[in-house]
């Protein structure tokens, strides 16, 4: 089993028995998609809601460009869209005292944009741990599609 790291504004695809990991999700949202029949999983660490233009340098950064790209890469490994399900985590507000700028509400906006993109592709959400003000580290298993979430205060939960 390997642990495949996903950085900020990054995405990756893995097969059973590998695990996809992204460390320290704050306002970013981790989108985990799996096709359990082919045991192909993908994880994107999304930073911002929408790209606003079709050709961006790093599609993995935005919800509306990252999710189609992730799905495409999973298809290339044999996953089928109609069998895909998603789990999402993150979108926290890390600095609650700052509110002068709409940017700082980016967590909830990221979550909305992620849900919209998944809906457009017809991928159902089977688990969600979003919002709040705690950072999260997530592990996504390509073997069974379980999403393990670690926070500082609440310890470990599994979706």
């Amino acid at each position: 089993m390997n642990i495949v790291k996903v950085g900020m504004a990054d995405l990756n695809v893995a097969r059973d028995p590998d695990i996809l990991r992204t460390v320290g999700l704050g306002s970013c949202v981790g989108v985990a998609i799996v096709d359990i029949s082919s045991k192909v999983a993908g994880l994107a660490h999304i930073m911002l809601p929408t790209a606003g233009k079709p050709d961006v340098e790093n599609p993995a950064k935005y919800a509306d460009t990252a999710i189609p790209m992730l799905v495409k890469q999973m298809q290339q490994k044999g996953a089928v869209v109609s069998r895909m399900v998603a789990k999402i985590a993150g979108g926290a507000q890390m600095f609650s005292t700052l509110n002068q700028n709409d940017l700082l509400r980016v967590g909830p906006r990221n979550v909305e944009a992620v849900k919209m993109s998944l809906q457009l592709l017809g991928i159902p959400i089977r688990g969600e741990d979003t919002g709040g003000n705690a950072g999260r580290t997530i592990d996504f298993s390509a073997a069974d599609g379980s999403l393990t979430i670690r926070t500082v205060a609440q310890g470990v939960t599994t979706l």
Binding site: M47, E57, G135, T137, V152
Partner: peptide, 26 residues
């Protein structure tokens, strides 16, 4: 601006701090 504080995972804090950079650059 006035400062804001948070005690949490370093990566998660950096996530939020980098939002302004991320909007314009990789």
């Amino acid at each position: 601006s006035v400062p804001a504080i948070s005690i949490d995972m370093a990566g998660a804090l950096l996530n939020a701090v980098l939002m302004h950079v991320g909007m314009y650059s990789d």
